[in-house]
Design a protein around this nucleic acid. Structure first.
Lengths: 225, 225
DNA sequence: TATTTTTTTAAGGCTTTTTTAAGGTTGACA
DNA sequence: TGTCAACCTTAAAAAAGCCTTAAAAAAATA
């Protein structure tokens, strides 16, 4: 699933990239309308996130030109909060949806899902890592014939670990993503759940480990003897 | 089975609602092309009944836009008797069938059945799962010689569970698909019906279980001793 | 209208998840 | 080697989510 982000505001662009790559989307970011149109015309994207106020060509022009050239990649327009008239232009100019800045990551992801669902692409939610397999739609963790069901938080944490494959994910990240933004969960909560996960991995006799890196976070590692 | 009616003529809209709800379809009615498109884009409907002459956006535009956005919900267009050329446009613009006003309720229902059958959305009448069998057209749940009749909502929920065989289906999904989009049914409603279903499964001495996964939803599981 | 069936609501009990807390390990570093 | 901070594990308490049931309300049916 490939996403093109056309956004000149560097901070926002960076935030978008992070949010999206975390969800395992492949992301390309460009910073103005000319590049945006060039990239978009390739037709390889599943969705285009397009700010309206960008250099050279604005979002409307890009979207309009895209449609004129029969590229029907869904376009999600980003617009400043107070520009109501933009909604109309947005809908006329080939945008499929629009969203006002600022927005919650969840909202962005929801809209992306709505737009891509229409393409009829069913997301596959089986993941392999090392010697085990995790089925996100049933929350089942399995190796060979053994399997256990993970509960909600265990599953969320494992998904995060899997999404970050060979990077280290910090406890703070885990807390904000699983417990939420303003929860008062402490690091021991994460530790407890990591412990539960380890027990279940051990139960299915997986050799994969959840490694702790002091002061940094956790990371999945397959055992390499 | 959810149907969207887009019709500005209030009397006709009301008649349609009545005809359809009598047949136990879940019906939403909106009165112009803008609302029609918005609602239709949700993708939750099994069929859309779309008048051509409606305010803001006509039926063609709505259907066209729907298809462009990859929503392939079947569209049944309504048109005045004498506008023959519309037929052609209708077929080009994404409509799956059209019907001239006025029409007999039976004709409407027949066409609806035809359209849904075509999409293969109607569940095969007979479904086996684990040790039981469910006949969707008679709503009979049976195992060996024992059988019970399910009522409407029980049947709808069981169909959902069967359609999602190897995934967990959330309560929210169940609510929106069985009670409808904007109902105020709470999660306890689902719980109660799940309980009824369990009792009936038990009554026919099936070993199959409806398993609850906290915070996630429900899932059918055959007993594996 | 009376009767039956379906649907909703509410409450108490039960199970699982989540949090908390306390004591145990580990490894870096003086 | 001893100290300390960070992390691990576990038991048990607390909370949340789900189950079941009865009874009330609504709807369908006779």
């Amino acid at each position: 699933m490939q996403i093109l982000v056309v956004e000149d505001e560097k901070r926002l662009a960076q935030a978008l990239r992070q949010i999206l790559t975390e969800q395992k989307y492949m992301v390309d970011v460009v910073y103005d309308g000319n590049d945006g149109l060039d990239y978009a015309l390739s037709g390889i994207y599943d969705i285009i996130i397009l700010d309206i106020m960008i250099p050279y060509k604005d979002g409307f022009q890009v979207a309009y030109e895209l449609r004129r050239q029969k590229i029907d990649t869904p376009v999600l327009m980003l617009t400043a909060k107070d520009t109501i008239p933009d909604k109309v232009s947005g809908h006329n100019s080939g945008a499929d949806d629009y969203m006002t800045k600022p927005f919650a990551p969840e909202e962005l992801l929801a809209r992306i899902k709505a737009l891509t669902r229409r393409k009829g692409e069913v997301m596959m939610d089986e993941t392999d890592f090392g010697d085990f397999n995790f089925n996100a739609s049933t929350c089942e963790l399995s190796k060979d014939s053994k399997s256990v069901r993970l509960n909600f938080k265990e599953a969320e944490i494992l998904k995060l670990l899997l999404a970050n494959r060979d990077a280290i994910i910090s406890k703070e990240d885990i807390i904000t993503k699983v417990w939420g933004y303003d929860s008062d969960a402490g690091s021991n909560n994460v530790e407890a759940y990591i412990s539960f996960l380890r027990r279940k991995l051990h139960f299915i006799q997986s050799e994969t480990e959840i490694k702790a890196i002091k002061k940094m976070g956790y990371r999945l590692e397959q055992c390499h003897d």
